[in-house]
Design a protein around this nucleic acid. Structure first.
Lengths: 132, 132
DNA sequence: TATTGACCTTCCAGCAGGTGGAACCTCTAT
DNA sequence: ATAGAGGTTCCACCTGCTGGAAGGTCAATA
C-alpha cells in the first residue's frame, strides 16, 4: 500500500505518517521507485497509534504500548496501569479547567459588559485578587 | 528592580520574563551595567500576564487584553466577550476530556489487570472497536 | 506521444510557549 | 582576593506535528 492509502485507512495525514517513520514508530519497506510500501502489519500499528493518540496518550506512551502490544508475554496489569495513570491525569486536567472556568465566569458575572470603560475583569487581572 | 526581584514578585521565572521581552510584551529600561530595570508599571503588566496566562489566555489574547487594559476608553463589553469566549472554549475542552475519560475507564474496567497476557485495552487499540 | 494532474519524495522552517545550558560579566560579602 | 549569587547573550531543544518548495513518478486522457 502507498502512503495515501494507509493514510486514509488509518485516518491520519500522510505528513504525520512520515513523521512517525522519522521517530521510528513505523518502518515501511521501500519500492524500487522510492515510494513507501506498507503491509497490513504496518497498517495495524498506524491505526493503533491513531486510536491511542486520540485517547490522549503521548508519543512515548504509544511507543510503550506498542512494545507491550507486540510482546505476547506482557502482563495485562502493565497496560491497565498505564490506562489508569492516564485517567488520573485527565481528572487533574478537568479539575484545573473547572477552577479556571469558575474564576472566569465569576469575573464575567461582575462585569457589566456595556460601553463604559470600567471593567472588573481588567481590574482583577491587574490586582491579582479574585472575586468572592 | 532587577529581573530576579520582579520574577519573584510576579511569580514568573526570569527566563519567561526575558522571553516576554523578546516578544515585546514588556519593555524594561536598562541600567548602565546592562541589567534590565523594571518599574512598578512593568511589574503590573507582568503580574497581569501571569494571571491571564494561568487563566488559560494565549499570549495573543494577553496582548489584546493588555491593550484594552491600557486603553482608558475601552468598553467593558469587549473584555467580557473575550472572557465568555474563553469559557466556551474551556467547556469544549472539559467535554472532550470527559468523553476520553469514559472511553479509557471503560477499557480499564474490562481489563482483568493481572499477569496474563490477554488484554482488552491492547485488543481494542488494535481493533479500533470500543467496548459498550 | 505529450501532457496534465494526482500522487510520491526530500528537506527546511515554523507553530506555542517556553526551558536548559554554555560562556561570560557584575555585584556584594567575607 | 575571591567566592557565590546574581545578571547578560545566544543557541538549541521540547511536543507533535504542519506547510511549503522543488522535484520525481504514475495513470489517464487528448
Amino acid at each position: 500500500m502507498n502512503i495515501g492509502t494507509v493514510a486514509e485507512r488509518a485516518n491520519l495525514p500522510p505528513k504525520t505518517i512520515r513523521y512517525y517513520e522519522d521517530i521510528e514508530l513505523v518502518k515501511p519497506a521501500r519500492l524500487e521507485n522510492g515510494y513507501r510500501s506498507y503491509t497490513e502489519v504496518d497498517m495495524h500499528r498506524l491505526r493503533f497509534l491513531q486510536r491511542a493518540r486520540s485517547l490522549g496518550f503521548t508519543i512515548e506512551e504509544c511507543r510503550l504500548l506498542l512494545s507491550l502490544y507486540k510482546d505476547e508475554n506482557r502482563a495485562s496489569a502493565d497496560v491497565k496501569a498505564i490506562a489508569l495513570g492516564k485517567i488520573k491525569e485527565i481528572d487533574r486536567k478537568i479539575a484545573e479547567l473547572r477552577s479556571l472556568r469558575a474564576t472566569l465566569s465569576n469575573l464575567a458575572i461582575h462585569c457589566h459588559g456595556d460601553d463604559r470603560p470600567d471593567c472588573p475583569i481588567i481590574d482583577e487581572l491587574a490586582s491579582g485578587e479574585t472575586f468572592k
